[in-house]
Design a protein around this nucleic acid. Sequence first.
DNA 1: GCCGAATGTGAACGATGTCAACATAGGACT
DNA 2: AGTCCTATGTTGACATCGTTCACATTCGGC
Lengths: 196, 196
Amino acid sequence: MPAPRANYHHGDLPNALVRTALRLIGRGGIAALSLREVAKRAGVSASAVYRHYADKEALLAAVAAEGFGRLNAAFVAALAAAPRQPRARLVALGQAYAAFALGHPEQYRLMFGNGRTDSRDERLVAEARQSFRHLEEAVAATLGRAADEPAVIAGAVAAWSLVHGYAMLRLDGRLDDLPPDRVPDISRVLDRLVTG
Amino acid sequence: MPAPRANYHHGDLPNALVRTALRLIGRGGIAALSLREVAKRAGVSASAVYRHYADKEALLAAVAAEGFGRLNAAFVAALAAAPRQPRARLVALGQAYAAFALGHPEQYRLMFGNGRTDSRDERLVAEARQSFRHLEEAVAATLGRAADEPAVIAGAVAAWSLVHGYAMLRLDGRLDDLPPDRVPDISRVLDRLVTG
DNA sequence: GCCGAATGTGAACGATGTCAACATAGGACT
DNA sequence: AGTCCTATGTTGACATCGTTCACATTCGGC
């Protein structure tokens, strides 16, 4: 539904492009996404995109930033619903993380895995940093230490690594060889880290 | 050095293409790699590639397979040099894994992260499976259980997730925000998993 | 109502992955 | 040795892609 618009001007092209890109990515994956297709679906010529994004990569960075925004929202929601016990809260974060990654595979892959972050996009940098801060706080609470202590940083990196690696392996189908009833879910994997 | 060849036939084009692709990837990254460039550097026309690989993705799958082969060789070497104690051997595997990933960033990214494995490449599938088996065995020895028990599978998945996630986060520059002296190295992260 | 800035258009360029038609080399069989 | 089949390589073409340039339209402030 390219939705022919009446006006010469679009109204909110930047957001419309991000939403369109997101929809197309969900259909055909990242590799199959073309700038021209996004523009056409948004009812606009290809070159119009360049009024709002420096290039294709910048548009994808905006999609990634939106993803980190949603991830952070999911974190906040998970923490609100979680019990008070620090360890349980950390596990809740990990579960929310994995649920997001497995629920939005292509966007998640855009947020990671496509080479380095596009540091031109300030929102992307800020939202990504915020995600890490959520993790750090939960680890700090679990260990009962200040957030900037080396042990806390190491713990947060370990937790992030575990959950990110698990998500990536599953998204890439790397665990599909396992008997389906043997693929451990994220809780089981998290237990290995949080407990001994 | 496109090395003009005397003969009409090349001799060992398939391997030459993989080696050339690997070299170019090391220079400019995966995204910048073009089939035509690989062919030119190998001293051959672009369409000659299609006599040996179904398409660009198939060639990249061959490069990935070669990577898994090298990873497995690194595993074997690490195990040969490691002490007898099961836990130390598991850590040695993790270190060898991280060293490979950080030492060959682009090839590692090709082995993972570019969507699902190209299952048309049998060698790729076999080598990847072998990598996981190494891990499984080390985890089984550490836990003192049989390799196909659910607890061992869960442990192997957890170990792989941790080390793969760590490598990916570092490759994507996601840990570059941290004060440089605070970026935990792989041993420190592994400790969190292997000990309590 | 005028005018500059913001936003959108269309045509064009070079590069890319892929394919079809053709050329050549090399080995098997006589 | 000569013949033919097949594997391998080449040339030229096509559609598509990201990107740019010159131009058109609209909007907001004066």
